[in-house]
Design a protein around this nucleic acid. Structure first.
Length: 271
DNA sequence: CGCCAGGTGCGAA
DNA sequence: TTCGCACCTGGC
């Protein structure tokens, strides 16, 4: 199946740190595990080509997952008009979309991320999926969907430890056995949402920010990672997280989360 | 070996 | 309120 796109960069969108469970294939396509299916997707200029083990609504699923109907162009133009210093990084990063990743998977992923490395996080997520997720055969390979909350509840602390989650085992167990209402977050202000997330063990400010930005499209909440730090130091000689946040909130307001993604993408790929 | 990574919880001051 | 430290795991 194919779809015409404009201002979409598949590679940047998939590889800029939003999701963990994807593979780059030899033909430069990507295989990505979504909620209910596995897809393979490839871009050639203004077209994306995709296949899946499930064809039902595939186009709609792709459009939703890669956020292709959200109007990034207007926001980008507005940002550049108000902040001319953003011209370079936005032109470099335009085509980067914020993925609509399943919320439960985002939460589990970022609980795993504390004091951890990306390959290790991915391995733990794969282990968890193998244990409680539905098996999918796609292009003669086995994949495992991310488990439902009911299946995650079947895992003990020892199971999480065995699945290489490390000391985060107890946080995962407590979260999955809590009465945390994943959809309630959408009804809260960003501050209340942050507080609610941070009331859970293993979720601090950084992890909560990642969850809200990547899982809930809250562009006014965002983490500051090493690449953004590097960018802000090199461009403005601003070094503390507090000052970086003050700077971004003042200039980029409710779109700061989007801007820091552009900074991240620019700084990390420009070397 | 020791160090550290997409931080956080905890006890001590 | 702030500070220092321990923490699974595995790659360097």
């Amino acid at each position: 199946m194919e779809l015409k796109v404009k201002n979409f960069n598949l590679k940047d969108t998939i590889t800029c740190g939003q999701i963990f469970r994807y593979e780059e294939e030899l033909d430069n396509s990507y295989t990505v595990i979504l909620t209910d299916r596995v897809i393979n997707i490839k871009q050639d200029n203004d077209y994306i080509y995709f296949t899946s083990n499930i064809e039902d609504n595939l186009k709609e699923v792709i459009i939703n997952y890669f956020d292709l109907e959200y109007d990034y162009d207007s926001i980008n133009n507005m940002l550049i008009n108000n902040n001319s210093e953003l011209k370079d990084i936005i032109n470099y990063s335009k085509g980067l979309k914020m993925i609509n990743e399943p919320k439960l998977e985002v939460i589990i992923s970022y609980i795993l991320s504390q004091n951890n490395r990306v390959p290790q996080i991915k391995k733990a997520l794969d282990n968890i999926s193998k244990c409680g997720g539905e098996k999918v055969i796609f292009n003669n390979k086995e994949y495992y969907l991310f488990p439902t909350i009911d299946n995650l509840k079947k895992l003990s602390i020892e199971d999480f430890r065995r699945l290489k989650c490390g000391f985060r085992d107890k946080y995962l167990y407590e979260f999955t056995h809590s009465d945390f209402d994943i959809d309630k977050i959408d009804k809260l202000s960003s501050k209340d949402a942050l507080d609610l997330l941070m009331s859970m063990k293993g979720i601090g400010e950084k992890v909560a920010s990642c969850i809200l930005l990547f899982g809930y499209h809250r562009f006014d909440v965002y983490p500051i990672d090493t690449w953004v730090k590097k960018y802000m130091k090199d461009e403005y000689n601003i070094t503390t997280i507090k000052d970086i946040k003050l700077f971004c909130d003042k200039r980029y307001k409710e779109y700061s989360g989007l801007v820091i993604q552009y900074m991240f993408n620019y700084k990390r790929n420009k070397d």
